[in-house]
Amino acid sequence: MDTQIKDAPPPSPQPTVAEQKRAARGATRPGDRIFLGLSRGSGILLLVIMAAIAVFLTYRASIAISKDEANFFTAFEWNTQLIPPKFGIAVLAFGTIVSSIIAMALAVPIAVAIALFLTHYAPRRLRGPIAYVIDLLAAVPSIVYGLWGALILVPHMNGLYGWLDDYFGWTGIFSWQQGAPRSMLTVGILLAIMILPIITNVSREVFRQVPQMHEEAALALGATRWEVIRMAVIPFGRSGVISASMLGLGRALGETMAVATVLSPSFDIQASLLDPGGGTFAQNIASKFGEASELGRDALIASGLVLFVITLLVNGAARMIIARRKEYSGANA
């Protein structure tokens, strides 16, 4: 490891402190110093970019918010052309959270079940190919999901909507006024389909790392397959599954095109998940950007800043959980 033994200046009887320090650090040749500088420089550049994102977005956002005549966090409208301009993110925050919650509620149990299927239930010969296909599905661009959602999924939702309205309409959140099913529920279902592959992939990696011994010990005690999963696999994989879900949540929160193609947006909050309306941060930026004025763009940047902070928190939390178990870092597996 220590090249400095050869590089060090001819051994003087009493090396000075400075010399010792330099020797301990290693990089003494010009080539080494340049290379270290380059690689450290790129690391620092990454940090600078992150900081720059925060600074620039905050700067433009502050311009917009200072001109906003309504409360930026609670206003239910987005009128940047108005004099005085009034806009707020309440509807967007609500829509983003609701669609993500629906997506998570649908995707996480199914993804975990598929991961278990791939590690414990599927015929051994099928496991590899199925995992491979799911890997590939994670790479399908979101705009393709969006196109599929808008042209194939939406027409197929009428039956489900009618059924939900018939039997659960009394709850209020499932009542349906026969509008086109371009509502939060469809968005949530589409997002669930989109984040399914990534959650499945990461969960599968985690389940595969369960020590064979734990499972065999449980089996030797006469446990059924389900009991093995409950006693050995799930406890071991819990933190991994949580962080996988957070990664999926991060995707769902920031998804733009799929929501923009499927949702028919409006600036109010619908009580029912089945009635079209509402919006999400990312969708609003994509849809409003085309006709936005200078202030309109700054306002959109301000809403983007909020989205940035939310995803930062979610991802940071996911990383904290992962950090406890280093080997789960299959973030982009």
Partner: peptide, 17 residues
């Protein structure tokens, strides 16, 4: 790690700003 989670639209907004 955190950067992997940046929504693509935020990266776009950054360059836009």
């Amino acid at each position: 790690d955190v950067m992997t989670g940046i929504p693509s639209i935020v990266a776009g907004l950054f360059i836009l700003s």
